[in-house]
Structures are given as structure tokens and as C-alpha cells.
Design a protein around this nucleic acid. Sequence first.
RNA 1: GGUCCGUUGGAGAAGUGGCUUAACUCAUUGCCCUCUCAAGGCAACAUUCACGGGUUCGAAUCCCGUACGGACUACCA
Length: 479
Amino acid sequence: MEEKKVRVRYAPSPTGYLHIGGARSALFNYLYAKKYHGDFVFRIEDTDIERNIEGAEAEQLHDLIWLGIIPDESTEKPNPKYAPYRQSEKLELYRKYAQELIDKGYAYECYCTKEELEEMKVQQLSSGVKSFKYDRRCLNLTEEEKLIYKKEGRVPSIRLKMPSNHVLKFHDLVRGDVSFNSDDIGDFVIMKSNGIPTYNFAVVVDDHIMEITHVLRGEEHLSNTPKQLQIYEYFGWEPPQFGHMTIIINPNGKKLSKRDLNIVQFVSQYRKLGYLPEAIFNFLCLLGYTDQAGKELFDKDYIFETFDPSRLSTSPSMFDNKKLLWINSQYIKAMDNEKYFSFIFPYIDEIDSLKDIDLNRKQEIALMFKNELNYGEEIVSLLKDILIKKDELNEEEKIILEKETSPKVIALFKQKLELLNEVNEEAVKNIFNEIKKETGLKGKDIYMPIRISLTGVMHGIEMYNIIDILGKEETLKRL
RNA sequence: GGUCCGUUGGAGAAGUGGCUUAACUCAUUGCCCUCUCAAGGCAACAUUCACGGGUUCGAAUCCCGUACGGACUACCA
């Protein structure tokens, strides 16, 4: 058999921003393409006109590229051979194929109204029927009957005629052999009465036309697969190989939903918070996949090389924000300084008093926090902790300040600092050493009173850095 | 209810019949470092792989059943 070039795709509907789940689907398809030197296609499934959102398509593509998941072909970079890349632009094609199925006797017009279908459903359910299936009342409509319906103003949808007792099986890239029986699947709609194809029909046509060879998608699509396979069979087309990845669950064990407000789950939100694309990319690789060598921190080239779809997991993975945070902090630490500066400056600029300081100064301050940060925006609150002194002290802090030696230490420090011509790290260290000698105190007893009188809190970055950030004048004022 | 999928620690998981005293990572806890927090270093954390049977000399690994969890069950994608 001739080796076909691997072609995979990510095909979102433009109903919102790129979220974690979508990004993960895209990512694994992308990895598959990279591993097997194939093409990764970004295409749009916009058949639900009601839910389409202006600008969502561009946002999704933009976020994807930001993450480093770069399509070889997309709505913005189409290959004429496969264009168009939006379903809404090839409605005629779907109609043509649907008609072909009707002509072959594999599909039929259905004139049922929404109300009738609803009623059918209620009736079936109440009469103890196990699962709802369309009762095929329009299967053998005569031309006369159709005419009557049409005169009533009814516009038909088109349903696929499922064969009876037909086993639809396939080898799932991640789950192994899976099979369904056509008897459990009702005649589903392939063309809505508004002339727009349904998802299950449109993907088949698209995947076939675009010569998609492999489809990695979420487990929620598993039960759609037999429907799609039946369509492939009717057309005599070769279906792609499917692989159904685990769903991502929230801490309650439920599928991550876009409405889940407890979890930040849009890529753009992470970008704004100061997560690095490489870190998210890495994290996403860990969601339902493990590296053979057990590595968890790796760069793209490594995963491109080693990716093995058979290692995709079959049990759901929980979205662990703490792990993302940790991975992100690792990537921040590993950044080279130039990159780090351009990453972190926008956050520093959020603080008015630091916005216009000179470059060297800003770099110095930025570096004080490089090992401290889990995500970019965190620097804002860390800096504010220093710049804005907390006014209410808690018990522990009060006790330290009220200790009999504390006022003396603070006074001594203030006095020595005032005499300093140039405040640099060494000079400040010397002051602490002198105080140590003169008072016989050490460690906590010296540092804490000063720390608390400067910032109001017992924790934070190194003392010298705090003094450095505040400046001599402000430091003296606070003592 | 039906169909399909899953079940190893707080979380992600490795494990494909003997090399498992169940790897590795996050989290948690303790210790070291240290003025503090963080970072970093070290260590602890599953007598056991949902449960019950079976196959086998031997099972987390294979088979059956039960329980539990999830996805789907739209003229949404």
C-alpha cells in the first residue's frame, strides 16, 4: 500500500476563545504531524450559525500560534487544493453529497417538526423505551405526502438511514478495538432543514476532501465515531484513523466545562497572567500523556521526536493548576535574561512609580524576582508588598517590634544608614555587621524589626533588595 | 434507562505475567540552608494496585462478575 502523507487537523467552532481542552486537542494532533512529518491543518466548523462569535476564529488561530502550535494550513494560509477551510463556505458541496446519499437510498428527507420530534421523545421515554431513536416515520414517504408537507410550508431535513444490525468497528489509536452496533443508533440528521450540514456529516466530508489521515479528539466524540463511519461506508471512502483522548476533568471529577468559573481555562487568560507559551505547551503534553522516559520537563524538539500516540492515557486526567504553576516557574527560572526582561517589564510597568525608571534600574529590580515568580503578574503584588507598607500589624509582628531590643536596633540602623553616602549592597551588609557587633544581637533580632518597620510583613525578598527598591530616603522615612 | 469508556497514593502517573522492596513528577510534611518568604538540597509519604471470584508454579498485569466514576444519547460541535 502506498504511504499516504500524514494529515491531521484541529477544527474548532468559532464560538469562543481557545480553551485548555481545545488547545490540548490541537497540540496532540500537532505532535502527531510533527512526529510523522505530516501537515497540521486548522479548519473552522461554523455550521452552528447561532453560536458563532465574531472574531473568535482569529482569536483561536492567534492563541494557537502563540502557544507554538503552528498550522501548516489554515483559514489564513489555505492550500488551494483543499480550500475552503470554513464549512460555511462550502455549503453547496455538502448538499451535493447529501443528495448523492439520497439518490443511493442511504438517506431520506424528514418532514417532522421540532414539536413532533419532542413529542416522540417524550412518548418513547414514558413508555419505557430504553433509548430514544427516531421512529423513521418519514422513511417511506411518497411523493404525494411530501408535497402535502411542503404545501404546509415544511422544509425537510435529511436523515441518514442506518442499516440494521450492522457492526461498526474500528481500531482506536488510544483505546484499541472498539465496536458499536448500528441498531443502537437512530437515523440521525445530516442536513438541517436550514440547508446546513450537521457536525457529524460535515466532518466526514471535510476530512475526506482534505485527505485527513488521523484524527485525535476528545473522548466525548467516541460515540460519534460509528455515525461517521457509516457515512464513510456509504460513500465508499476510507475513514481516517481515530484516536480518542481522555477528557480533562476538574477537581470534582467532571469534564472541564467552559462555564466552570473556578478554573482559568482560556489560553488568553493565561497569557495575560504571565504564563509562558512553552510552559503551557509542556503542561498540555502532560495532560493524558506520559513520556516513555518519565520526563516531565522537555522542549518541543524532544517531544516531536519521542511522541508516541500509543502512550496516550485512557483514564481521565485532572487539570492540576499547581503543576502548571510549577512548570511555569521552572520555565521562568530557565529563561535567559533578555527574554525575561521583555516578558516581565510589562508587569513592572503596571506600577506607576516604576514605570519610568531607567532601564538598568528596571533590570536590576526584575532580576530580584526571577527565582521567586510562578507567573508574571505575580511580580506586581510582590512589588506592592514592598512599595506599599502594610498598616495593620498582626500579633506576631507586634511582639517583635515591642521587644526591648528592637527600638535600639532600628535606631542604630537608621543612624548608620543616614550617614551612608552611597547605598549599595556591601555598605548595607556592613551596617548589619556593625549592629551585630555593637549590640551583641544576631539574626532575627536584628533583621526582623527592620523588615517589619519597612514593609509591615515578616516575609519577602532579601533585605538589601527591599532597601534598594525603596531607596534611602523612603527607607529612612519608614524607620 | 441504553451504548461506549474507565478505576494504581491528595494529583498526574510508570508498569504489557516473575527484574516491583509498585519508578518518576506535582502537592503535602519534616530536616538542611537562611533575617523571613520563596528558590535550592535532603528525606518521609500505596505492606499494595476499587471489590469478589477464576486462570497460573506465580497477577497491578489475563478472564468473568459486582461496585463506583465518566462520556455520549440534539435539526450543538
